[in-house]
Design a protein around this nucleic acid. Structure first.
Lengths: 353, 353
DNA sequence: GAGAGCTGGGAGAGCGCTCTCTCAGCGTGC
DNA sequence: GCACGCTGAGAGAGCGCTCTCCCAGCTCTC
């Protein structure tokens, strides 16, 4: 009964073979039961299940992947980081700390959970890392990629496409690519902000734009300007930020210096809006009495601190979930054409405007 | 030359066999070259490398894992979520949005990157999810687990231990477990905050504590009280928060009602400190003139908004990196005893105190 | 100059699983 | 009554890789 040392059979994890032996059937039958293939006698099924329980059998993922050619994992790639933001470490830290990213992860998770699939986090912030991502996918370690590009001119989407690897993008790429993607109607978002600010009677609205290379930033700016023009503001001063709080502060400082009488600010994301708020406070401007501020995203940055931000909400979680669904649809039907889904932004009214 | 349809050889990815054929050597030799095993003639090595390039060969991860028994991946598990925080979805969102978590991911990444390993993100917020995590590891999909418990009484660490699965915890568990972990000296952190507040001459310091079940929260509170007692404040009023901004606001409101003359606040994390700041502003209290506020973590919440928080910094990135290193040390030497590493917190002075 | 020791490389046995192929057994329909 | 289908189950061929053997051809040493 009791031995000094557990035998090999005891210590090694059970295999299909072991279960088959215990159940008195063939490997194939055990496999059928486990994978829920019909045509197995119910009684036998129970025998097999008992044997599985008795042996503590757990199928080996690698062996299964080897034959099915499916990894049961997807890569969640944060791509194109590392513009001019100083040292590597802090850049990386920033990406994951960005509340926007947290919402993406959250949305991906909720779509992945029912499928029993888990996301593998990857960073593609330099050529080497990019190559790593490609290898990873080519090696079959993940079945496809969910790509969140933080910068345009990101070569990854094109590389994935060229390699024939299944991928879906969050945010449409700089130039049209036959790849599936989800995005928010950034232009409409800009309009929403403009209409609100103008509606409040802003006489000198300004904007803190995203980096010029990022399509999302460009579109928000374009939409904002367009709507403002229609509202009688043919020219709207703007300063560019890099989507970080510090960037927002710098931009706000510049705008304030050049246009001391500004009374409305639209920032292309909440983090920059927060930065703007800080600078405005430092200059003794009351928000929203003296200056109204509208952000974009409705990330946690909108509600952390006072005043809470009026902001253009993008449904990031739903977008991320949709992105995941599209990827799996692609996996199931590789020949299908790329899909693009555009979400509508909404204005969330809070204290700042 | 050109055919209507690519042949099987064209479309299927190359295997070791193909490379071997092209190079005119055996599979074994190609494998040796690829895995950098010595004893291969340099000239032959080049031939093989050329063949690899010519065929576009990429080793198949599953096949490799199957024979090596290594997955080349680790699970990054966020465990024990979902206390009383309402619906699932928002809970999940909160976890990933927490800037603290972003720092953990960042630290894990920097330690994993040189190893060419990627983290698989998992959530273990209910029994089913927990079971999924265990299966995942038992199936060999990941070689070990990095566990960030957000709540004590989290059963996952014990389950991992019982299953003999390699794991390292961030934050020591509620009751001692023979598992490796990294943690910050929370008690010392509490002291740091107390000394600073007392040093500034606070007459009625109060504290917003973490949930009683979380060891980290308990220790921060204990350290704070201890040091305050030594400084002549035998009793420090406290209110409990749940580490969220909303929790901090509620706690601050209560404290303010009960102790209107309070002039110093130590919050067990930055998010709660931010909440406190909001409430203080709503009550017309100036920070730091009327009330000094000290946070804990030095997360991005500390610097988003005004005033910037004076806070007790824990080196989360380094801790996460160390956690990762410990896991791999364990993988290399499974028989070794569990290691625990304790990090020292530091006080970061900013505007709020 | 023969046995010992090394080095470079091939053969081939698996790793644990899925899935096709095959076949036995048992109705059915004309 | 016989060809035909249909269901349930086993045999066995891989999936692509690593790694242990094993062997050929050297160089040494006594």
């Amino acid at each position: 009964m009791s031995r000094a040392l557990p035998s090999a059979a005891d210590r090694k994890t059970a295999t299909l073979e072991d279960v088959a032996r215990v159940a008195g059937v063939s490997r194939a039958t055990v496999s059928r039961v486990i994978n829920g293939v019909r045509n197995v006698d119910p009684e036998l099924q129970q025998t097999v299940r008992d044997a599985v329980a008795a042996t503590g059998y757990v199928p080996n993922g690698a062996a299964r992947s080897l034959v099915t050619g499916r990894a049961g994992a997807v890569a969640l790639v944060v791509s194109g980081t590392g513009a001019a933001v100083g040292d590597e470490e802090s850049t990386r830290s920033q990406v994951f700390t960005d509340p926007f990213f947290g919402r993406v992860v959250s949305g991906v998770f909720s779509a992945l959970r029912p499928l029993g699939v888990h996301p593998v986090l990857m960073l593609a912030d330099d050529p080497a890392a990019r190559e790593q991502v490609l290898s990873y996918l080519r090696q079959g370690n993940a079945d496809g990629a969910l790509v969140v590009s933080t910068h345009a001119e990101d070569p990854l989407p094109a590389l994935l496409l060229a390699a024939g690897l299944p991928a879906v993008l969050f945010g449409r790429p700089d130039e049209p690519l036959p790849l599936s993607c989800v995005d928010v109607a950034n232009r409409d978002g800009g309009r929403l902000a403009a209409d609100h600010l103008a509606g409040r009677g802003s006489l000198l609205p300004v904007t803190i734009a995203g980096p010029a290379e990022v399509p999302a930033g460009r579109d928000r700016l374009a939409g904002f300007r367009e709507a403002m023009a229609r509202r009688g503001h043919p020219y709207v001063p703007s300063a560019e930020g890099n989507f970080t709080q510090a960037g927002g502060e710098a931009a706000m400082t510049r705008l304030l210096a050049e246009h001391p009488s500004l009374d409305g600010v639209f920032a292309a994301n909440d983090l920059m809006a927060r930065g703007a708020l800080s600078v405005l406070a430092d200059h003794g401007r009351r928000v929203p009495e003296d200056v109204a501020v509208v952000g974009f995203d409705d990330s946690s940055a909108a509600t952390v601190g006072r005043p809470q931000l009026t902001t253009v909400r993008q449904p990031v979680e739903e977008m991320a979930a949709e992105m995941t669904r599209i990827l799996f649809a692609h996996l199931a039907e590789p020949a299908a054409r790329p899909t693009s889904v555009l979400f509508e932004p909404t204005l969330v009214l809070r204290a700042s405007a």
